[in-house]
Computed example of a mutant assay.
Amino acid sequence: MTMEERIIELEIKAAYQEDLLQALNNIVSQQQQQIDRLEMTCTLLNERIKSVSNQRQEGENTSNAHEIPPHY
């Protein structure tokens, strides 16, 4: 193998590595966007659960206040 062939082979390998690196970078970027969306969804769901829980507790407190005692 001549020196020129070796250089060409190295240039080809470098080009493939650059393409692979760009593809991996795109995948990581997409995954990060998906993680960000999932974190936002989890935050919203957590807030919704807390809101529903608070409403439920407030509803139980008000319904107990108007309940007739069991001896009537």
Score class of each variant (00 low, 15 high):
His71Thr: 10
Ile49Thr: 06
Ile12Pro: 01
Leu10Ser: 04
Thr41Asn: 06
Ile27Asn: 07
Glu18Asn: 06
Glu60Ser: 03
Ile7Asn: 07
Cys42Phe: 05
Gly59Trp: 06
Leu20Gly: 04
Asn61Trp: 14
Tyr72Ser: 11
Ala65Gln: 13
His66Asn: 15
His66Met: 15
Val52Pro: 00
Ser29Pro: 01
Arg48His: 12
Gln55Cys: 05
Glu4Asp: 05
Leu45Val: 00
Gln34Ala: 10
Asn25Ala: 09
Thr62Asn: 12
Tyr72Pro: 02
Leu44Pro: 00
Met3Tyr: 13
His71Cys: 09
Ala65Trp: 07
Leu44His: 07
Leu21Phe: 12
Glu18Ile: 05
Ser29Met: 12
Glu18Tyr: 02
Pro70Ile: 11
Gln33Pro: 01
Gln31Trp: 06
Thr41Gln: 14
His71Arg: 14
Ala23Gly: 09
Met1Tyr: 03
Ala23Phe: 07
Gly59Glu: 06
Thr41Met: 11
Asn46Gln: 07
Leu45His: 01
Glu11Phe: 00
Gln31Ala: 06
Ile35Val: 08
Glu11Asn: 01
Gln31Gly: 03
Gln33Trp: 05
Lys50Tyr: 04
Glu9Met: 03
Met40Asn: 13
Leu38Glu: 08
Gln31Asn: 13
Glu47Asp: 08
Leu10Trp: 02
Ile68Arg: 15
His71Ser: 12
Thr43Leu: 10
Gly59Pro: 00
Asn46His: 11
Glu11Ala: 02
Glu5Thr: 03
Ile35Ser: 06
Glu39Leu: 04
Glu60Cys: 03
